[in-house]
Amino acid sequence: MRNFLRSAGATLKRRPGWLLLLLPLSLSGCAGQLQWYVVSPMTESGRANLLFMLGGLKYTILLSMTAIVISIVIGLLVALPGLSKNPFARGFNRVYVEIVRAVPLLVLILWVYYGLPIMLGVAINVFWAGVLALALSDTAFEAEIFRAGIQSIDRGQLEASDSLGLGYIDRMRYIVLPQALRRVLPPLGNQLVYMLKMSSLVSVIGMEELTRRANEMVTAEYRPLETYTILILEYLVLILIVSAGVRYLERRLSRRDVR
């Protein structure tokens, strides 16, 4: 963690251009229409409002992280039959990806939360409905990412592994996946960023994450411009931190591969 903060700090030092991001905020302060007091840390109520909004952070992070972990695991399991010689296995992969990819996320969230309980006869709470919908819709993309990553591994690696008498599972575990994972790290980082943003849609079923909290603030204070600006900044900061984290990981993993 300390390393990570240091690398983020170093990035800021190397590229102070990032600070420009703060410019619109200071500029917009000059306009008379803005009433920053609703979220001002200087006043009692402003502080309370800010804390209320930040309170959604926990669920945004929890939702996205749980969903991405699930979707990476399932995505990999869907990708593997796509690489098989068996046409039925490949067919399963194709059909799964095409169908899941075709369902809009918002529709999937509504279907999982309102529809699925009727089908299964059990209630699903908001959090798990959100996780399920986010994870499911992401699996199709993860599957495609993994398929591409695994296919990019040089044939010679597979032949060397075969000639050592390694079986399919050992080959995947020790040779193919460790190399493929390194290559798919950038697109996986993309998916994580995407997931963080898409988790805002779960607000429609009442999950108390960042967007829902902001909506509630707007209803209470009726200051949409200030509130949603803060909301945007919340996502921005969150995602910049995640991007820096992914980049740090990439650097660490690529350090040894001097080629």
Binding site: Q157, E159, A160, S163, G165, D257
Partner: peptide, 18 residues
């Protein structure tokens, strides 16, 4: 089983880079 008794050396080495 047979492959564990047959060593193979390739033109492109095919070492595991990771």
């Amino acid at each position: 089983e047979a492959r564990t008794h047959i060593g193979m050396v390739f033109q492109q080495f095919n070492l595991f880079p990771h």
